[in-house]
Design a protein around this nucleic acid. Structure first.
Lengths: 194, 194, 194, 194
DNA sequence: GATGAATGAGAGTTCATTCAT
DNA sequence: TATGAATGAACTCTCATTCAT
């Protein structure tokens, strides 16, 4: 990658970060291109130099975070740990991202309403892929005799649902630290899976 | 209440129902005043006779559903049942509404972004009040020795979070019936609380 | 048609007239919705109450004129006249409209570049239909022995091409009156067809 | 002319050719600087090294073609031929260019709308000069007794109008070959002038 | 000479809201 | 009470043009 390309890539990342920020502040639907640009002291026109349109900018934003999350959780699955340990770490990772990326994470929620057909399929697929890692952890745990669940998929949905929800109510001012929350959530889930 | 007032109240309810429908169909941000009015064969101008503005219409919409939910869950709490039974019924009720009212239910999720200061406080308060009933069920269960949890509030958050999340992925075509989902969810939660 | 409807229809016509005017003044591509609205002391937003979008407004504009032209020329064809008389009158009518509606008439020229697939077919069809009347006049003249042409279609193309071109150079200030132009054109064409 | 200047002149020609191509493909108003540059694997910024702005580029484009046409038709006029032969050849040449340069040729149509005062005068003048050659052919033919027309200018306008119009409907797929069209047009015109 | 990047003005479009009738 | 009509602000997107490097 040439210097130019690296610079451009960096700029794209900056824009994505700015977009994430604005989305977090104003919510997805009130995040205008103007806002996103202003955050970087650019004009909105410049954004179109890097992204075809708003949808693609937002799509990239979403993709960036989901890809990172996937990488991390996949790595955890590959570690040499008990299934309970894996789940504990995976939940913590997921919570960590869900809290940190609050709003952007939310784009995953209703992609059908935000994205057009071009992108929607890839999004759904990636989302399923991500959820699939949790399924594999659970399945492995059941096989190893660590977990005992009546329905694996439903268990995963409860886990991801509850953790996704965290970003709805979580705020720095809350009485619980992020670490504390992560511990308690993991504990409850393991109890549920046991 | 005079006849005129009763007529107006009825019309308001009609509008709210229409709004719920449109929101469920198009998603919150794509529900225009025009759409809502069209559903009732009115013109959008008429809506302003009954509601000050869009926010208030949406607020009422949200309030209607939350109030109904509260009433039902409160009733369950007052019944003469074991805490486990109460929780099971409450979860089922909550799931039932979350699935049926999909989108409108979502207004609860990010009220800060949708409503202005005037309404926001009341919404948060009502939401907390609703969550409080679940807190009371858990507290009662702990006192009675039915439940055994390390942190009550967190347990409630997991339960409501997971159930709220249902509407994100649930769709009639899914392989699980609503009843089946309700049973499994209740089972997992009770295991978690035990 | 109710009073309301008639009022709306009248307004639509006003807009069309205004659009024609602005197009004539600024040229097709520089005629903005703002300009068209300003001409009527409206705001551009109001135009969207009457027309779905700019294309449809322009399409209606074009359709109005072409339809009127068609009606007139069709009537001439039905008259009890010699083919030469018919052609003379048809050419005059065509020239009359081409001169009066200068710019709007030009929309017919390159519809492929201005209109989307939805409208394009209908436009082409109508245009062909209009040209068809001239074809019929020529064919009739040939059958009656009044005209003597090697290729009917090509003759029509020359006639319509030359008359369409009039609006390119014609301007009130020119040394020829409209009537004079019409006479000379007709004379030349008849000589060509003889 | 220095080497440098010659190089620049060559590049200018390349750009003009590219511009013609893009205009022909997309139509005048949809030909962006970006498109024109891309055709030459340049960036649009570079175009501004050779041309002051878009208008001047387009002006040059137009000028190039008109100049070439003028040269050819002027040469025909100077040949030792009957007026009828001259007109036949001139018409064929004109048709040839009109068909080949379709869109660019169209710039001539409404120069008032495309060019600013700076260029407009020169364009009109050149256009009149070009038309003048046809006038001279006709005048010569009249003097020689080959042609018999009531109004020379009008005759020329019909001829150029009809031929200009060709590019509106002509397309390779048509049932007539370019040669056939040229023959028929010439035949009709000569009949008209006779 | 040429590029990548940015600007800024303006276009079309949408929609909550208002108001005379 | 309700409607038709209009407003105005906001938004996405485009493109000719500029300029440091």
């Amino acid at each position: 990658m040439s210097l130019r390309e690296r610079k451009a890539a960096k700029k794209k990342e900056d824009i994505l970060r700015s977009a994430s920020l604005v989305i977090s502040r104003n919510g997805y639907h009130n995040a205008t291109m103007e806002d996103i640009a202003a955050e970087l002291l650019m004009t909105k026109g410049a954004l179109y130099y890097y992204f075809k349109n708003k949808e693609e900018l937002l799509y990239s934003c979403h993709d960036l975070i989901l890809s990172a999350a996937m990488e991390q959780v996949e790595a955890i699955f590959s570690e040499d740990l008990s299934s309970m340990e894996k789940m504990k770490k995976a939940v913590k990772t997921h919570l960590d991202i869900a809290i940190r990326e609050k709003e952007v994470f939310n784009l995953i929620v209703k992609p059908e309403q935000l994205f057009s057909e071009e992108n929607i399929e890839e999004i759904i697929q990636k989302r399923d892929q991500y959820a699939g890692i949790f399924d594999r952890i659970i399945a492995e745990g059941v096989k190893r005799g660590e977990f005992n669940v009546s329905d694996k998929k439903m268990a995963r949905m409860i886990i991801l649902g509850a953790t996704n929800w965290v970003q709805v109510w979580y705020s720095q001012e809350g009485k619980f630290s992020k670490e504390k929350i992560e511990d308690i959530y993991a504990e409850y889930f393991l109890k549920m899976l046991a």
